[in-house]
Every structure is written in C-alpha cells, then in structure tokens.
Design a protein around this nucleic acid. Structure first.
Length: 226
DNA sequence: GATTGATCATAC
DNA sequence: GTATGATCAATC
C-alpha cells in the first residue's frame, strides 16, 4: 500500500484529512493501490491502517503518536448516519505491576489522548467495506472537564490494578474510561499481582473510551454530517 | 440497540 | 510477547 509522506505541520495534516472527506473506502484503497478485505472480522484494523497511509502516519508498532512531529494521535471511529459511534475506542493497554504509572500526568492514557484527530467512517455493521464513507475529521484536545473525568476514571481504575484487586475489575466501571480485556483470545494472560502480593495469571486489560464519551467529543459544535 | 467480554491481523 | 490497528458476538 502506498503511504503518504508525514505531514510537516498541523494545517497540512488537517488539509489532507479534509481532502478525503466523502471518499469511499473503496476509492481511497484504490488511490493507495490497496486491496479491500472481504470481511472486517478478519481485518479489524484495516480501516485505521488505510487512513494512516492516506494521511502519512508513521507505520509500525512504536508507542509514539501517529504523527510524532505534531504530537497527534489518529483514531478512526465507525459511526452511524446520525454520527453516533458504533464502538468504544481502544486507548492503550493497562499497566501491570512492575510497570505501573504513578500519576495521571505521566500516564499513557493522558499522553495518547493529548491531541487526537478523529476520523469518522460512516457505515453499518456488516456493510461492505468498499462502500463505507470517510466523514469530517475533528481535531480534539480534551477540555478541562473532559480531562478531569478521564483523570478520575484513570485513577480509580489504576488503583484496582496497583492494589491487586483484579477480581473487582470489569467493564461496567468508569464513566468515560473503562477497563476491558485486550488480548489475542481468552487463553491470553499476563502476570499480575493480587491483593496478597502473589503473582497470578490474569487477562491483559486495556483502557477504552466509552462510545457515549466519544460521541460527545466528536459531536461538539457539530452542524453537519460526520 | 447498547454494552461487555472476547477476538483478529500485522509489525518488530 | 508487546506494540500497533480495532471490531466481533454473546448477552444485557
């Protein structure tokens, strides 16, 4: 797949993102010389990777922002016709004992979400990938209220991990941020410390943004379609 | 229909 | 295995 060179400025990135509004994923893939998977079930990250290539995000698996020089993270988000997100948004894996983060300010969640370029993609579940359409991008910097909500959830949830209260962790906790499994499958595990300080096998967790939070974020001052 | 727990692909 | 990119599918 052809990959654009990284944008050198924020206006350049925003111009590129604006230039692909209204394109179908089929058109975008063709422009980049890429094929279109027949089912997303076997290619869950494909849309994100396609938009990365189109906008010139760095490839690879580095724990750095997609647009490193600009400090911008790219997130595609599947949305319905009314602009509401269909899904939660993965942020990062949760820290395990031995690599926990002492403060919200130093957390990966905060760094990841410092500046996010949201690219909505219209489509219905099960819809042919090629016919889904790129929506209007939004550059998001959390406002003080949003950051406060994120920080509180992060602290509450991190406390459970650091305190080893693993049995209390489930997806219903958190107003805007939640902890959910993030692994290859149910057999996947991580070594974590329980309340007694014993190392135990536990499912690896990840932080996710709730869909209703993302909806509020990308819906700020929305006057037109996504 | 929304949500939670489970799952899929790829790079290094 | 850990990071990246997320959505699936059973259940509420």
């Amino acid at each position: 797949m052809h990959r654009a060179a990284p944008p050198t400025s924020l206006p350049e990135l925003e111009a590129r993102a604006a230039a692909i509004i209204g394109l179908s994923l089929g058109q975008l893939a063709a422009d980049l010389g890429a094929g279109v998977p027949t089912e997303l079930r076997r290619a869950k990250g494909w849309i994100g990777q396609l938009v990365e290539a189109a906008l010139g995000a760095e490839a690879g698996s580095k724990p750095t922002p997609d647009f490193e020089a600009l400090g911008v993270e790219l997130k595609t988000i599947p949305v319905a016709e009314d602009g509401r997100p269909h899904e939660s948004t993965f942020v990062c894996t949760a820290p395990i004992e031995g690599a926990f983060e002492a403060s919200w300010e130093e957390s990966r969640v905060r760094r990841k979400l410092a500046r996010v370029l949201w690219v909505p993609v219209w489509g219905r579940r099960g819809e042919d990938l090629a016919t889904r359409v790129i929506g209007r991008p939004r550059l998001w910097v959390p406002d003080p209220q949003e950051e406060a909500a994120l920080a509180q959830d992060w602290r509450d949830l991190s406390e459970l991990i650091v305190g080893g209260e693993l049995h209390r962790i489930h997806g219903r906790l958190g107003r805007v941020l939640q902890l959910r499994p993030k692994g290859a499958n149910a057999g996947d595990f991580a070594w974590m410390m329980d309340e007694e300080g014993e190392w135990v096998r536990a499912v690896p967790y990840g932080f996710y943004l709730r869909a209703r939070f993302t909806r509020a974020v990308i819906g700020r001052r929305r006057r037109e379609g996504p």
